[in-house]
C-alpha cells in the first residue's frame, strides 16, 4: 500500500503531569511521533494511563506543560476545527434528533441550515443510518449511537479524526461489526485517523501503524508498521504473529 508520507501532525517532546493528593503524578513523558496524511494510526496503551491525556492535548482541550503539537507547519493553539473527535462515552445530545446531532458541528461552524442538512444526510447515509434521521438517541442501540458520533465527526470535514476508544463500551459482537464499519468508512472517505484503544487485536486489525505506549507515565515504547492487506483475517498466522509480538512487549495494566 503506497501511503504518501506527508506529515500532517507532529508531537514533539510532550510532557504532562497532574497533582493528585498532594503529589505530582506524571501521565505523559517525552512523547514524540509523527502522523502521516491519510494513514490509520492506532495508539495502543494499557489501562487508562496517558492515552486520553494525549488525545486531550492533540484535540486542544488541554495544553501540554512541555513540548508542542504541530498541525502542518504551525503550532497547535487550542481547539482547532481541522481536528474532530469521536468520543469514548456516548456523547450525543439526547434532546436532538440524529440529523441534528450530526449537523451540530456544522451549526457551530455557522453553516446555513439547508446546507448543513444536506451534508448531514450524506454522512448519515455513509454510516448506514438512513431512515433514522428523526430518531432520538434514546431510541438507538449502542452501535447505532456510535455511528451517529462517527457521522458527526466526519460531517465537519476535518483533516484529522481522533477516536478515543470509540468501541470500548460496546458488546463484543457489535464491536467486531463496528471495526469493519470504520474500515469501510475510512476507505470510502480518506482521512487521517488517530484511533486510541487498549485492545491489541483491534489495533492490529485496524492500524496501518501502531504506536505502543508504556504504562504510567506513558511514553512511546515501540512502533509497528503493519503491511497486511485490509480487511485483515484475525486468524491469519501473520496476524497472530504480530499480535503476539505486540502483546509480549506490552506492559501489564493492573
Amino acid at each position: 500500500m503506497a501511503i504518501e508520507k506527508e506529515v500532517i501532525l507532529q508531537l514533539k517532546n510532550i510532557e504532562q503531569s497532574y497533582v493528585v493528593d498532594n503529589s505530582v503524578k506524571q501521565a505523559v513523558k517525552d512523547v514524540s511521533f509523527n502522523v502521516y496524511k491519510n494513514e490509520f494510526l492506532v495508539i495502543l496503551g494499557p489501562g487508562h494511563c496517558g492515552k486520553s491525556v494525549l488525545l486531550n492535548i492533540i484535540s486542544g482541550l488541554e495544553s501540554a506543560q512541555k513540548g508542542q503539537v504541530y498541525l502542518g507547519a504551525e503550532p497547535l493553539a487550542g481547539v482547532d476545527r481541522r481536528i474532530s473527535l469521536v468520543f469514548q462515552r456516548l456523547a450525543l445530545l439526547p434532546w436532538m434528533t440524529v440529523i441534528d446531532n450530526v449537523a451540530f458541528g456544522l451549526r457551530m461552524a455557522g453553516i446555513a441550515k439547508a446546507e448543513r442538512r444536506k451534508i448531514a444526510q450524506k454522512y448519515i447515509n455513509l454510516v448506514g443510518l438512513q431512515g433514522f434521521e428523526k430518531s432520538y438517541p434514546s431510541q438507538l442501540s449502542g452501535g447505532m449511537k456510535q455511528r451517529v458520533g462517527i457521522a458527526r465527526a466526519y460531517a465537519v470535514n476535518p483533516e484529522i479524526l481522533l477516536m478515543d476508544e470509540p468501541f470500548g463500551q460496546l458488546d463484543a459482537q457489535t464491536r467486531y461489526a463496528m471495526q469493519e464499519e470504520i474500515l469501510r468508512i475510512w476507505q470510502q472517505e480518506k482521512k487521517t485517523v488517530i484511533f486510541v484503544t487498549n485492545n491489541i487485536e483491534e489495533a492490529v486489525y485496524l492500524g496501518d501503524r501502531i504506536i505502543l505506549l508504556s504504562s504510567c507515565p506513558a511514553h512511546v515504547k515501540a512502533e509497528y508498521e503493519i503491511q497486511m492487506e485490509k480487511p485483515r483475517n484475525t486468524v491469519d498466522p501473520e496476524f497472530l504473529r504480530i499480535r503476539k509480538e505486540i502483546s509480549d512487549n506490552t506492559d501489564l495494566a493492573l
Partner: peptide, 9 residues
C-alpha cells in the same frame, strides 16, 4: 463529555 463536544466543535 457534552461540554467537550461543544468545545471541540
Amino acid at each position: 463529555v457534552l461540554i467537550h463536544v461543544g468545545k471541540t466543535c
